[in-house]
């Protein structure tokens, strides 16, 4: 019998602890599939963030280190300099990357560190219980914006890809969502391209994944997906934001 679907080797046989409808499980799997397909599992070092994905090393079947909150790009930069022939990527949430770690991500991009960044944008701090993130939409209710995010008080959502696109050092930036099979396939393609960019020695790339967090959003998993597709994409445009991989 022909096997058409199985657990990627880069994924451990562990049940994950993510909430129902959470996007992390999907993206973890996409990363694992890509690493398998590129045949780089044994030379990959991943950097897990502080946030829901901090336990990513319980799920990925390759070397993974933890890093202080927001600092994965600095850690990744050093690992890549010490071991230039390894595949190094960070996996970061919006609090980690776009708030406490803004400085690190900007300068890693600006140095064009030859790394891959998987950026999960779910518009809130998941692990700590659903507080406002830099990516929380205007008017969106969180535990620290209980009447909805007031931009006059809390400012505007940060568009990471567009921000980084202004830097000379960024080579490939794409925003994807994981709301349906077609978009999940697109997301995988983007993640694969990002790793390929690194393998080709071209420099910094980042894939921003709009990802549902239905439990903290107070929605059902299906409504969570609908929110990503209908609300988040209004503010965070899906598509390639910058591509300088072909010159």
């Amino acid at each position: 019998m022909k096997q058409v679907y199985c657990r990627p080797e880069s994924l451990k046989d562990n049940a994950n602890s993510y909430c129902p409808g959470c996007g992390h499980g999907i993206v973890h799997r996409l990363v694992a599939e890509v690493i398998d397909e590129l045949g780089v599992r044994e030379k990959t070092v991943g950097i897990a963030p502080v946030g829901c994905a901090v336990f990513a090393y319980d799920y990925w079947n390759f070397d993974v280190t933890e890093a202080p909150h927001g600092r994965p790009p600095a850690v990744a930069c050093a690992i890549k300099r010490v071991l230039p022939d390894r595949v190094v990527f960070t996996y970061q949430g919006d609090g980690d990357l776009a708030s406490i770690g803004t400085n690190e991500i900007i300068h890693s991009a600006n140095r064009s560190d030859n790394i891959t960044v998987i950026f999960i944008n779910n518009a809130n701090y998941g692990m700590t219980g659903g507080q406002m993130a830099p990516t929380t939409l205007p008017g969106m209710k969180t535990t620290t914006t209980q009447n909805g995010r007031d931009v006059k008080v809390s400012g505007y959502p940060v568009r990471v890809c567009e921000l980084l696109a202004t830097l000379e050092g960024t080579r490939y930036l794409e925003r994807v969502m994981i709301t349906d099979p077609a978009n999940i396939n697109k997301a995988k393609k983007a993640i694969k391209k990002s790793f390929q960019t690194q393998l080709d020695g071209k420099g910094f790339s980042l894939v921003e994944v709009l990802s549902p967090c239905p439990v903290n959003w107070g929605k059902s998993p299906l409504d969570g997906l609908k929110f990503v597709k209908e609300e988040m994409t209004k503010y965070f445009k899906i598509g390639v934001i910058k591509d300088e991989t072909i010159q």
């Binding site: 070092v45 950097i47 280190t65 890093a67 202080p68 600092r71 600095a74 850690v75 990744a76 930069c77 050093a78 690992i79 300099r81 010490v82 071991l83 390894r86 400085n103 690190e104 900007i106 300068h107």
Partner: peptide, 23 residues
């Protein structure tokens, strides 16, 4: 490798990363 880091925080975390990698 020498890196002039963007901040003290980045610098110590680069050292953390380099140590993770065995340097």
């Amino acid at each position: 490798s020498f890196i002039q880091a963007e901040s003290e925080l980045a610098a110590i975390n680069m050292v953390l990363g380099a140590s993770v990698a065995g340097a």
